[in-house]
Design a protein around this nucleic acid. Sequence first.
DNA 1: ACTGCGCCAGTTTTT
DNA 2: CTGGCGCAGT
Length: 750
Amino acid sequence: MSDPFDLGQSGAGQDRASDGRAAFAADAPYLDALNDEQRLAVVALEGPVLVLAGAGTGKTRVLITRLAHILALGRAFPGQILAVTFTNKAAREMFDRVGDLIGGSADGLWLGTFHAICSRILRRHGERIGLDPGFTILDSDDQLRTLKQVMAEANIDEKRWPARGLLAVIQRWKDQGLGPDKVPAGRDAEYLQGRAVELYRAYQARLKAVSAVDFGDLLLHCLTLFLAHEDVLADFQRRWRYILVDEYQDANVAQYLWLRLLAQGGGNLCCVGDDDQSIYGWRGAEVGNILRFEKDFPGAQVVRLERNYRSTGHILGAASGLIANNEGRFGKTLWTEAEAGARVKLRGIWDGEEEARLIAEEIEALHAHKHNLNEIAILVRAGAQTREFEERFVSVAIPYRVVGGLRFYERQEIRDAVAYLRVINQPGDDLAFERIINLPRRGIGATSLRVMHQLARARGIPLATAAEQLVDSDELSSPARNGLKGLLGLFAAWRALAEAAPPAEIVEAVLDQSGYLRMWRNGKSADAPGRVENLNEFVTALAEFDSLGEFLDHVSLVMEHDQSTESEAVSLMTLHAAKGLEFDIVFLPGWEEGLFPHQRALDENGHKGLEEERRLAYVGMTRGRKQVHISYAANRRLFNQWQSAIPSRFVDELPDEHVERHTSLGLYGGAGAAGFQRTARAKVRRAKRPGDAAKPAEGVEQASTIQVGDRVFHQKFGYGKVTDIDVDKLEIAFDKAGSKKVMDSFVEPA
DNA sequence: ACTGCGCCAGTTTTT
DNA sequence: CTGGCGCAGT
């Protein structure tokens, strides 16, 4: 399997357990490396265990050592252990570290995300509940599209009831383990005046008709399977003697029910989590799960990990003081033997631009003092906030990377290419078929599509089958008929090819023969070359897989794309994306009411929303090992309008003894805004004097070394790509401004 | 079948 | 200020 971290192969590891055992001495020396609480969490193997692991207390280490310990004692074979995570990244990390610890004999371990494990179960047993084993997993885009179709059929006014809203409601129901028949009557009124459940049912029927499931279904169907077929459940209960769950605070109700069913077979459940780091409530995570653990699993042992190995005393003190303002929590007291370090720096600033400038200056100073830029992060509440920093960093040549931006597999051209593969793999995949039927243009428009849909629905057949039946009839216009005939012929040929050829070869044939690649090659738009490049990368990615089906599962479940981390750069990301990471120095800008806590969180979830925002602040602060800098601006540009802002309430909640306040006197109240504007502007100009200009950071190219194909930035035209060079004049295809000729001294490498 | 205009909304995001 | 979407026009 190309993604060993995704899922191991069960059974295969049975005789390898002895290897694992042999690798350990009976006195288990690896336990000596743990503190008392950690050791307790590792050796408490029997019965339910909840490990409350504060930030930086060695949570992952405990989980991995526990796993290794089970194997070392010979309590179970790898195939009898289930380890679930929420992200692929976490699964991969665990896989690698377990491998390191026990010497590479973790084959057969069931290790993966909830979704990947459910998917695997459903591929094998889904038929028992009427699920096509070749089901496709839809991403959020496809989900929305499907729901829109369903709503259109039901004559719902999309203006009044946006599909997004209904999708959110349906997803929440799925998160709670509620199928269309189980939604309590009262809850139905929440949206669409009581028609939501009806549409939910229609949506599920539609998914079934096209052999598709969405992410929520993976859990939901699995629950249905377990509940309807005791033998299947019993089989898994017997199989998994030990169950380990990471980040339990992120579990939704469906996941909780799933775990509870499995653990009822006498399996030993161990959940690790931190209620203070629950930041995915808006996605269905239930902090209640972790708070209720002892009630749900009678006789549970609760182990608290409170010794922090990451941050300085002041950072820990400030973060603890902040989170103490939350009500619904277990309450932990993190402590450290590390030095107190520097206090958390708090700074009030005139506006967002100045904030970016000051942080950039500080980073330059840190860099000059030999701080590695990889150890510096700027964590923001909303993705859009990174822009201000990017602009500043580009103009002063600080290398940076934005973590968690656009994902590779979510790009249009990649989704199109994937759609072709989906149709080859699963002819009944209507969504994919519809996506590419007229891409590139084949003269098949809305009218032809409507005819196909009609026939498909009338006969209960997939769209592609309907197309086959129509292609020799007179129902379609002749250009549409020809276009369709060509496409269907190609699919037949590709499917034949797929019997024998490796995936990479198939996709090359598809991109070439469909004309899709040519479409972008001939494209005049500025982004066309980049798309061609991405498609090439796509072909490369496919080379690692043995079959199309395997690859498509990877795309649906392991949607990620490694960002290059080789060069030294400051990290820019959202607070959510930062969970689980740590840096020497962390900047937390934008601590203003309305932005952080975000207004929408308050409006939609009130007090609960506020507490989650506070946890987010806590997560942000506890990412820092040595320094944390918090800042807030009195004015911020939002949708290109200047708005004044007041400091976040979180700023006031930070205990004085751990912070150092640098707010300009009178910035809030006192002198009028105009006066401050003057000083702020004056400062801006001063900073732009040559003496303050950035020294180019290491590894950053000078403008004079720009080559064709380089990404560059121009103050007026924005980002673009160099297409031609004539001594000192560059021809650049700008993303927004089109193609222009500019002098090289006006651009900088992007 | 495609293009252009006008309206609206505009956190967080993994699977 | 953007971008996305639906609708109307050619």
